[in-house]
Design a protein around this nucleic acid. Structure first.
Lengths: 249, 249
DNA sequence: CGGAATCTTGATCAACTTCAAGCGTCGTGG
DNA sequence: CCACGACGCTTGAAGTTGATCAAGATTCCG
């Protein structure tokens, strides 16, 4: 992983002092030339929580790479029902390679720092660097797997199974000191839009888990998993994180 | 598009005589060398309707490219609930690039003819040919868009909206002489697994559409769309086929 | 013709939504 | 510093959708 220096002039908001200086920059290749060009062309942008990074159906000219913070990728029906398609985390790409127009909405749900680069620039880098193309292909394939796992969750799981599955995903993903202490990156409204439920159902099922002693809530967003085995049972069968060996490098 | 000749010795089953001779072979590049090697390494295989092409969680060594026929990509929970993730049609890849193990099941729902090539061979072709890699990336991005559109359908649409949306997708995709005559590639059980419903609900909602005069059924699998505007209204807002301009060639 | 698979229809039921009201917390402005 | 409103969360009651269970009808094929 290579790093880019974030200049002090760009005044990151709500980012801790010691996090400001160096930012991991993904998709960099071993090729010096490509790397220099990516460094040169990419600028750092900051977005506040709640800010819109992308609106679907719009012409877009810049690709963003999340460096810090979380955003949602979402879409909705004309009557307002919305579905969150994915949480975007550091190293995720925002924008649609190969298309003039975006297809989904992107909204920051925490303060977000992102690398910004012109889409044409990024695409011409891909044309130059087969290695970078392979890396992007690779991460796209992983996103596709994730989306497909989510299809099973949305199409076939019950409310409690959806919630249990999601908590387990969070737990797996978090590299906390206390691995069973999970911080919800979303409020219950957003959680509902992610799991295809209503916020009332989310609240009730969380209470349900709490009453059964499976979780304990420390504040509205801090959840401690007390009984992970029960949670696994209630998730209706987890799709194991497949150990994808990275043959494609 | 380049073509490969299907040798008579391989005796395709249930494929019409005039379809047997030449098969479109996708992902071919303008590079002569790559093309020759792909031609050389790929063999033709036939699968009968109902046959399993891939089981999830298994080690896999061969990539298949569907040349004719339809298969389903699916996954299921331990208790048997299953979700069909996508219909696989000609030019779709079967297998997971970059991973030793498969993640989903693939089942033929009609007789299928597929090109078969060793995964390592295919991956080393990708390493050689940046153009081919870009094409695969491109089609993966499109699959990702499709999967995400399906997330909205499964998470937020009602039964009738799901069915209407699917019929419209079929209609859009079919290049029939009579564009409003749609052939269902699936039985109602499979349709249920695709739309996240039960087969009884499918049957009832089809009857519903029939009673309202929106569709007319000619046999169990032939559906004529009588009132496409109503169908669009009932679909709860279609995601427009975005006109992705192929900037990435 | 017989049997399996598929489709249809009805009755009942459960899960989840909808609607409604109330509570706690936080931030802002008087 | 307190009051107020916005927002997020909780809980209850009622309503709907779609699932489940069950029984037939139809089609398909050997």
């Amino acid at each position: 992983m290579t790093y880019i220096q974030s200049s002090a002039a760009e005044s990151p908001r709500a980012l801790r002092r010691d996090e400001q200086r160096f930012v991991p920059l993904p998709f960099l290749t071993s090729c010096e030339h490509t790397q220099r060009r990516l460094n040169k062309e990419m600028s750092i942008r900051h977005f506040e929580a709640g800010e819109t990074l992308q609106v679907r159906g719009c012409c877009h000219h810049r690709i963003h790479i999340i460096l810090q913070g979380t955003a949602t990728l979402s879409t909705s029906l004309p009557d307002g029902r919305t579905q969150i398609l994915r949480l975007l985390m550091p190293s995720d790409l925002i924008g649609r390679l190969g298309s003039e127009t975006t297809r989904y909405d992107v909204t920051a749900i925490s303060d977000v720092m992102a690398g910004s680069i012109s889409r044409h620039e990024f695409e011409s880098l891909l044309r130059i660097s087969p290695e970078m193309t392979r890396r992007v292909l690779h991460s796209t394939l992983r996103e596709l797997d994730e989306a497909r796992d989510w299809l099973l969750l949305l199409g076939r799981k019950t409310a409690i199974e959806k919630l249990a599955s999601f908590l387990l995903t969070l737990q797996r993903r978090s590299q906390n000191l206390r691995p069973n202490l999970v911080r919800l990156p979303l409020c219950q409204f957003e959680l509902a839009d992610l799991l295809g439920l209503t916020h009332e159902t989310i609240s009730r099922q969380l209470a349900n888990l709490r009453d059964q002693g499976v979780i304990e809530c420390h504040g509205p967003r801090q959840i401690e998993i007390l009984d992970i085995d029960s949670l696994v049972d209630m998730s209706g069968g987890e799709i194991d994180e497949c150990d994808i060996s990275y043959v494609m490098q």
